[in-house]
Design a protein around this nucleic acid. Structure first.
Lengths: 246, 246
DNA sequence: ACCACTAAATGAACGGCATTCATTTATTAG
DNA sequence: CTAATAAATGAATGCCGTTCATTTAGTGGT
């Protein structure tokens, strides 16, 4: 198959999430064989997967649970996706459309990058299990992802970046964003050294004095420790990369 | 170096990896009940897990395979570790001892950070499945990890960093390092936009001109695209953070 | 109008996985 | 000496992703 690119170009957008409960008692089985109207499509599968993730987390996202959500036998899913990895791919690409690239093109490059980077981090902080998927995923079959890269690339080009520096800069920023997304999910006491505190004096002192900061957020900086680190790192990267513009 | 902490302080260092094949025909079963000399310990489990990972990758690291490597029933492992996650933890902490922190204390802070960051990235580029583990792992029961943080913290303090800025700086650098480790494993043609290239002109152009660079590595910068991005990002972070020293 | 082909569903089955439990044997503490 | 604990086996459990044979419905060609 592999028809050229897109998935469901001009499709009728059947809401496949509501499986027509049909009034009567809850879960009456569908009889075998192809149904008159298709029950599943990629959009419906994506929506159901997201719903499931939001309700039960990524541990709750199993092919069986997904099938149950769609009121379908598990094996039916494999008529539309090749694997669970394929489902994660669909979810990932959808999430990319939630990343805010509106800051590019309007005002200063720095502001565009800030909006993009913070929203990018926030989206994937809630979906860290997808990060290993994204990082290795070819953009070819991920239209939303490709669209995001296009807007960001244009933002950099318009800001005067030399062509050959654009991709490395985006990649470096993205790497920082992915790593920082993990950081958001870490427990706040992750650095508590416990019983061996006296053997690590410098580290223990540094942790204490950084944890005591409970001041009001200024500018883009928000409250949590992860936000402080992200703010500082992002500003350093913006300054560093901003200097190589023509 | 770094010897301070370490588990199994004065143990007899029994090589638990070689399970005494005992001359005779290959796999003769051990009889049930506690053996006179203990077969397993945490160090042996860690070594076997690493061996398995190097030979078969992380997909090959199963509790059953690990038990087989140690010539033991799978359930025996649970007398020494509580879960597979626990095994990953042991491996992770061991890997931390491979990160090169020798650059701190000798010369300039910048050089110390460079050595540390590059080796840190290289170690975990070969072990990306551990990154989600580290990022959420409390440092308490990871002595090697703690030792690394201590050395790095001291390096920052000696370089004149204000106490409260040390942890955020390390966290930001670490986030960048983890994200960049993923980047190393990505296929080189990850950005090939394929059939929809004409709808993403800016991105496609940027990809083309960055891919054409095949020049000799200068300084810390190595050959691959991932190295270029890492080099640029790291230097930007070093410059940015270096400025806040007293 | 027929007929072959393909698409989309069911339901049973499979192998692999982490983990638990009862049992056996050996060591250690009181 | 004896009770408790530690460390092994081996059987069993439940879940997970995936495959396969089967059934039914639409589709394209003559």
């Amino acid at each position: 198959m592999l028809e050229t690119t897109n998935e469901r170009a001009g499709m009728p957008a059947v809401s496949a999430t509501q499986g027509r409960p049909s009034g009567s008692a809850g879960t009456q089985r569908r009889r075998a064989g192809r149904p008159s109207a298709a029950v599943l499509d990629k959009a419906g599968i994506t929506a159901a997967a997201l719903e499931l993730i939001n309700r039960k987390g990524y541990d709750g996202l199993t092919m069986a649970a997904l099938a149950r959500e769609l009121d379908v036998a598990p094996s039916a899913l494999y008529n539309h996706v090749a694997s669970k990895q394929d489902v994660l791919l669909l979810v990932e690409d959808h999430l990319m459309s939630l990343v805010d690239v509106s800051g590019f093109g309007s005002g200063a490059w720095e502001a565009g990058v800030r909006t993009w980077a913070w929203s990018y981090r926030d989206v994937f902080a809630a979906h860290t299990p997808l990060i290993p998927v994204i990082a290795v995923l070819p953009v070819t079959d991920a239209p939303q992802t490709l669209a995001m890269y296009e807007t960001v690339s244009k933002g950099f080009a318009d800001a005067g970046f030399p062509q050959e520096h654009i991709i490395p800069a985006i990649v470096a920023l993205e790497s920082f964003i992915f790593g920082s997304a993990y950081d958001v999910t870490a427990p706040e006491d992750i650095f508590e050294s416990g019983s061996m505190a006296e053997s690590t004096p410098y580290f223990t002192a540094a942790v204490r004095s950084s944890a005591s900061r409970r001041d009001a957020p200024a500018g883009q900086e928000r409250g949590r420790p992860a936000d402080t680190a992200f703010h500082r790192g992002l500003e350093a990267l913006i300054t560093g990369f901003g200097a190589i513009r023509k």
